[in-house]
Simulated scan of single mutants.
Amino acid sequence: MSTQRRTLVTVIVLLLLLAVIFFISVNSGLVRLTPVETVHTLLGQGTPDARLILFDIRLPRIVIALLVGAGFAVAGAIMQGVSRNALADTGLLGINAGAGLAIVLYVVFGYGKLQYAPVVALPAVAFVGAALAALFVFLLALKDGQLAPVRLVLVGIATGAGISAAMLFFTYRMNAYNYTFVKIWLTGSIWGTNWLYVQAALLWVAVLVPLAVYKGYRINLLTLGDPIATGLGVAVQRERLVLMAVAVGLAGACVAVAGSIGFVGLIAPHLARRLFPADYRLLLPGAALLGAILVLTADTIGRTMAQPVEIPVGVVVAAVGAPYFLYLLIRKP
């Protein structure tokens, strides 16, 4: 089977898998909707209660899960390509934590009540925090003008831990409602989302993911090393900054609407490399698709495994991602 045909078959299989998980997620919850009720409701023929459950509660949550999974996955793939480090991920590098701290500060000092904060402003605020954290980590990780892979991960983990401690300090200044919400949100949760959150995340993901795919060929060249990329006409520093800004923007937007869901940006790109050719123009869409499947599956499991209690999606993903990270760390020479 040719490479193109194999890639096409892989995409079709993943889309079918995503459709199955989507249908299962729509029918999962405390209030069960039969498949017939779901189809009728989607066609505009359902009862008022079914329409409320489907269109106002479940569909926004599902769409957010898809957007966040795709965004984190593409951000992680970009970071791995730009830094030439297979362990790079916005969560492990402290970038997600920086975005989270910016939102916590925004809530503490900008608004007394979280529910009054303009949702569409949250991704921009998170982008600032993520960008500052990324700048700090990359500057400290430089050694003789080059990014040291192991040093990058260690600095990122230490930075993330320090930022998390700062977030914990500022949460004590919140009222009871905000404190409870932020604690759940920081673990990685898409509970309580609505169409405003979808709009806020969609704008960033719909712009930055296609831009990343458009820049896929440049990432291919950057993975060959700076001297070769420069010889092939790539403005290395400029392209690296643009791509890092794209990754930071995606991470910030995803953290703003769903909290810090770690390991998606680590697992999805690695799975994509096993299923797709080594071309970032194909790897990035493949990683986005796999990330969407991973987060939607994790959220569905978290909603149904311990009903009526919900397990945050970040906890479910971490249960898989942490062992996988240790495997990669041990396996890496």
Score class of each variant (00 low, 15 high):
5 R>Q: 08
298 A>E: 09
277 P>G: 02
3 T>Q: 13
300 T>C: 01
31 V>E: 12
197 Y>F: 10
51 R>M: 10
172 Y>W: 10
81 G>P: 14
203 L>G: 11
119 V>I: 15
256 A>C: 07
102 A>R: 07
84 R>D: 11
130 A>M: 04
158 A>S: 15
147 L>G: 03
118 P>T: 13
218 R>E: 14
136 F>R: 00
78 I>R: 05
138 F>V: 13
127 F>P: 03
56 D>S: 12
290 L>I: 14
22 F>W: 13
118 P>Q: 10
324 Y>R: 06
113 K>R: 12
215 K>A: 11
233 G>R: 02
86 A>D: 14
208 L>F: 14
234 V>W: 10
145 G>L: 05
61 R>C: 03
309 V>H: 11
294 L>S: 06
302 G>Q: 01
165 A>K: 02
39 V>W: 15
254 C>S: 10
71 G>N: 06
160 G>W: 12
18 L>D: 01
263 F>S: 03
60 P>E: 07
109 F>C: 01
329 L>Y: 14
18 L>V: 00
305 M>F: 15
327 Y>S: 04
88 A>M: 03
184 I>P: 00
250 L>F: 04
288 A>D: 09
328 L>A: 02
143 K>E: 12
273 R>S: 07
3 T>W: 03
105 L>C: 13
332 K>W: 14
66 L>Q: 05
250 L>V: 11
329 L>F: 13
275 L>S: 07
98 G>V: 12
64 I>Y: 05
82 V>E: 04
62 I>P: 02
332 K>Y: 13
55 F>R: 00
260 S>L: 08
92 L>N: 13
144 D>G: 04
269 P>V: 09
168 L>Y: 15
201 A>Q: 11
307 Q>C: 00
327 Y>I: 06
269 P>L: 01
160 G>Q: 10
301 I>A: 06
275 L>T: 08
24 I>M: 04
291 G>D: 09
64 I>F: 07
193 T>N: 08
10 T>N: 01
316 V>H: 10
196 L>R: 14
247 A>V: 12
215 K>N: 08
34 T>M: 03
